[in-house]
Nucleic acid binder design. Structure first.
Length: 595
RNA sequence: GCCCUCGUAGCUCAGUGGAUAGAGCGUCUGCCUCCGGAGCAGGAAGUCACAGGUUCGAAUCCUGUCGAGGGCACCA
């Protein structure tokens, strides 16, 4: 492609006059183009329409059809009494001369295809560089508060690999929602009450007594993992054998708390190790505690609230929630005949508490084994008057492979690879990246060997390599030794990448393709946030990395014989760096300057 | 038995009403005097499980069949 002589310097163009702001995503601009064209055509009397329909635009599947397409002519042809192609021709003619439009054509039954001008695409580079890490930030959330509750493992054992995936999902979802304008809080619900805790305590106590040389029978349903023995050994070392002669109840109560504290510490440490931090750790026990003023627990309060609303009845000594009124399969017991509360009762109280805390929306990430539980929870939330404010995302499980071979695990025998083991072996970047690559409700095959591989077959390296490669180019342009460990390119790029670079020179195919890909990012954020689908991020990351590698192969960046083109390309390359780093930050993976 | 999720290229998966259904891996064929080859270009590869329906248009929505996985407690 020829580089014309009279390219305008971007900084002289009108759009540069305005001060930094969050420019509307390209799609908004395109939608406005079509909207205005239709309105103008109606005004001019070329088209008669009772009312102007909502203009929907989309990206054509086939890039040969252009950057954007709309079916508005087909959608409103009937109302306008024209055939779709005729109407499309009228609209196309009205937008053909706009400075952001390179080409417009009517295709098929009446699609209007539009190709953005190089000018419109070059402007995206300025957006990226001006917004930095905020590039792609949108305001869909409008500052509303959303809580994301995830992992929520029972504190009775180490995190398994599935927990790790849900942690990556929840944290990334939270990051995406933040980028989409939501005020996000991350919460971990600790099921620290109930039979599992009892079983846990009994299991540790039994191992402890074994260490003391006592003859004990291990509880039939007890946890047999090696970690139980470790916890018991620790207590044995620290506190000696005094507990062997204590009463069973005392011993188990003590061990329950000791072991619980250890597991909580483990959970926090492992999650922290992969960059996941919670704002709130919510203990189920607090829901059972009696409030001093009322003498009643949060659970009792919540049941009373439902009773007043007419959703509660007594039957055969138990207290029931009429969840079938809210399209559950059957009614559910909240308070058992023996006077204790079901897990569900506590969970309703927990959700009531969430909404009392003022969240506009609550998102739960639950393991696949809880999906039969979704309907009744939705019913309960609806009965509390918060219909449509709950999203339950089901996180499917992870199957571990090693070079194609299934890694066998058994919870009963305690033979398993914990999430911590996996993290130690593949590192947090690969773990997080792989966990996000599949859609949430899809079981995931995780190949440990592949995750560790440093080759193009490993997508996380492919993406990170693009970032490192960009940094190498920038180092070279800055005159630094490429292998110089002391150069921090992210910090210094701003100084030597010229703000007045002649971006008009960027009009070859690889350059335009790169800019088009960058322009997509705000839409990716929007879709990922709306669909709660963080796997869109990894997909986009790989797309952007690939587009960059293609550009790199075809376009020499640093060329002493062409300083102006070099300046423009450096500008584009640095924008790509910023965008890649932003995408990776939402995935929760590092953007290395060297590898 | 009932409910939920899912059947798309050899494999792993994108694609929640639009045009000739896409990507990675695998498999062939090419590309290093050159900013990081951890890269790039090209080829072959499909009855979108099956059968009906809805409409201008269906991988996508509805119904049924077949197949896979998960869930069915006064358990958590």
């Amino acid at each position: 492609m020829p580089h014309g002589a009279a390219h305008a310097i971007l900084s002289d163009l009108p759009f540069r006059r305005e001060q930094p702001r969050s420019p509307p995503p390209v799609r908004e601009l395109v939608a406005d183009l079509f909207r205005d064209a239709l309105a103008a055509a109606v005004e001019a009397g070329e088209v008669t329409l009772p009312e102007v329909p909502e203009v929907r635009i989309e990206r054509p599947r086939d890039p040969a059809h252009g950057d954007w397409a709309t079916n508005v002519a087909m959608a409103s042809a009937k109302a306008a009494g024209m055939n779709p192609r005729q109407l499309a021709d009228v609209l196309a003619a009205r937008i053909a001369d706009h400075e952001d439009v390179a080409a417009v054509e009517v295709a098929g039954p009446g699609f209007i295809n539009l190709r953005l001008s190089a000018h419109a695409l070059q402007r995206v580079l300025v957006d990226v560089r001006e917004q930095g890490a905020a590039f792609g930030r949108i305001d869909e959330g409008g500052g509303r508060r959303v809580q994301v509750e995830f992992v929520s493992a029972n504190p009775v054992g180490p995190m398994h690999v599935g927990h790790g995936r849900w942690a990556a999902l929840g944290d990334s979802m939270a990051r995406v929602l933040e980028h989409a304008g939501w005020d996000v809080e991350r919460e971990f619900y600790i099921n620290d009450q109930g039979v599992q805790m009892d079983t846990f305590a009994k299991s540790v106590a039994a191992r402890y007594l074994e260490l003391c040389g006592r003859d004990v029978e291990f509880p039939e349903e007890g946890y047999r993992g090696a970690y139980i023995v470790e916890i018991a050994r620790e207590i044995h070392t620290e506190e000696g054998e005094a507990w062997a002669d204590a009463s069973e109840a005392e011993r188990e109560a003590h061990f329950r708390e000791k072991a619980y504290a250890q597991v909580l510490e483990h959970l926090g440490r492992v999650l922290s190790g992969m960059g996941v931090e919670f704002d709130v750790w919510f203990s189920e026990r607090t829901l059972h505690e009696l409030a001093p003023e009322s003498g009643a627990s949060a659970i009792e309060h919540t049941i009373e609230r439902l009773r007043e609303a007419g959703h509660i009845y007594e039957h055969e000594g138990a207290t029931w929630f009429r969840s079938t009124e809210f399209s559950d399969d059957k009614d559910r017991v909240l308070k058992k005949a023996d006077g204790s509360y079901t897990y569900f009762a506590a969970d309703i109280a927990y959700h009531a508490d969430k909404y009392d805390r003022g969240f506009d929306r609550v998102i739960n990430i639950w393991g696949a084994d809880h999906h039969g539980y979704v309907k009744r929870m939705e019913a309960a939330v609806a009965a509390l008057g918060h219909e449509d404010k709950l999203d339950v995302v089901i996180g499917q499980l992870v199957n571990l492979f090693r070079a194609g071979e299934v890694v066998r695990m058994s919870k009963r025998t305690g033979e398993m690879v914990t999430f911590e083991d996996l993290l130690d072996e593949v590192g947090p970047d690969a773990a997080r990246y792989f966990f996000l690559r599949r859609s949430t409700d899809q079981p995931l095959d995780f190949d440990i060997a592949l995750a560790k591989e440093q080759s193009s077959e490993n997508p996380v390296y492919y993406v990170q390599y693009a970032h490192a490669r960009i940094c190498a180019i920038l180092r070279k342009a800055a005159g630094a030794d490429t292998s110089d460990e002391g150069v921090d390119i992210a910090a210094t790029a701003a100084e030597f990448v010229r703000a007045d670079a002649p971006l008009g020179l960027l009009d070859s195919d690889p350059e335009l393709t790169l800019m088009r890909k960058l322009a997509e990012w705000p839409e990716v954020v929007e879709i990922a946030a709306r669909q709660l689908a963080p796997h869109k991020l990894t997909r986009y990351a790989e797309d952007l990395a690939q587009t960059f590698h293609q550009f790199y192969t075809q376009c020499r960046v640093v060329d002493p014989d062409a300083p102006e083109l070099t300046a423009a390309r450096l500008y584009a390359v640095d924008a790509t760096r910023v965008a890649l780093a932003t995408v990776l930050s939402l995935i929760g993976v590092s953007a290395p300057e060297r590898m």
